[in-house]
Design a protein around this nucleic acid. Structure first.
Lengths: 191, 191
DNA sequence: CTCCAATTCCTAGCGCTGCTAGATATAAGA
DNA sequence: TCTTATATCTAGCAGCGCTAGGAATTGGAG
């Protein structure tokens, strides 16, 4: 039965097409422009087809978020790998994190601000999220000292996340971004 | 013409009723439950009346946010005022900030996550936001050193904001919250 | 006191959203 | 070739933010 195999493959391709369409639309026009009708038009199928792949629009957004976690993790891994010394590693990882958020704001939003519950119920996310988090943790390991490494890394992460989100919502001026990032990095760098 | 004065007063009362209804509804049932139809029912007027007071739903949310900024500023002022020593001041201000966000999550959301543009165009917000921010800045002043005080304070703020939002969206476990907060406070405390 | 003008307010409706029931077309197996 | 099962679409629901146009109420002038 190779026809069945073909149909399953086509179905998987269509599912990926939905995710990609949602991602592209969100990146270019923002999540408000991502409606089920536009997604359906994009993949050249009718609306209900979306619901045979995903439980609802939230699940589609969650799937985009899952891809985002993998991307972010990869970016953090390569940032730390190419750092010259431990102190530079913290700065490079921080810069890579911020760059990811600024270059793909819609993806960052769906990963950390929108779509609260869904991704964390899935299988893939904890893996890729942990993969990215491990890079942050390894970078700040030298400075952890007596404190719990996990708590230090999470706090460092929160600092990055706060800088990114506050700046993106206009609460912090763009101009002083580098200075603030330097302050944060300094607080979590070995001397 | 005291009738005109009465009508203006009644109009102002109705405007406040709209804000209060939106705030209460958001606190008890979340912002998704705050629809123009429910707000209209709450104040016992028809929908279009809302639009004679506010440009749209976003403006109503912004008005709730404005009240929130005043509340937060007051909480931070009293937290720092009652602190025993400079080191405790940082911890107390941080605790007050987090407590505000955790006790009124819907208000915090509309202040810092939703309603991107609107509040910052108004007059009141910069005042109350600056009032709250000044408390954070004064608390971390002893630790600023060579760095720009504003940048240090903004980074400290970002750390608090990051902890609050990541925890609320389920990205950080509640259990270790105190430990993370201690790490952040320690990084911004005079020794 | 009456009439007119201005203001205030509501009814009804538009275009959009996410989502779904029921009908239709297509493909597979006997 | 006929029947059954699967895949897909058409059409529609209830809700959203928002608004045009008419009805009701109020204020001032004659």
């Amino acid at each position: 039965m190779s026809t069945q195999a073909r149909r399953e493959r086509e179905r998987a391709e269509r599912e990926q097409a939905i995710i990609t369409a949602a991602r592209d639309l969100a990146l270019t026009e923002g999540w408000d422009a991502v409606t089920t009708r536009r997604l359906a038009a994009e993949i050249e199928y009718s609306q209900p087809v979306l619901y045979s792949h995903f439980k609802g629009k939230d699940a589609i957004m969650a799937a985009v978020a899952v891809e985002g976690f993998a991307e972010l993790a990869t970016a953090l891994v390569s940032a730390r790998a190419s750092a010259a010394d431990p102190r530079q590693a913290v700065a490079d990882v921080a810069a890579a994190y911020v760059a990811f958020a600024q270059q793909r704001p819609a993806i960052y939003d769906v990963m950390f601000t929108l779509a609260v519950d869904l991704p964390f119920a899935s299988q893939d996310v904890p893996t890729d999220l942990a993969r990215g988090f491990a890079e942050l943790a390894d970078a700040v390991r030298p400075v952890a000292g007596d404190d719990d490494l996990e708590a230090v890394a999470e706090t460092f992460w929160a600092g990055l996340h706060g800088l990114v989100t506050l700046m993106r919502s206009g609460r912090l001026r763009h101009a002083d971004h580098d200075r603030r990032l330097a302050v944060l990095v300094d607080r979590f760098s070995p001397r």
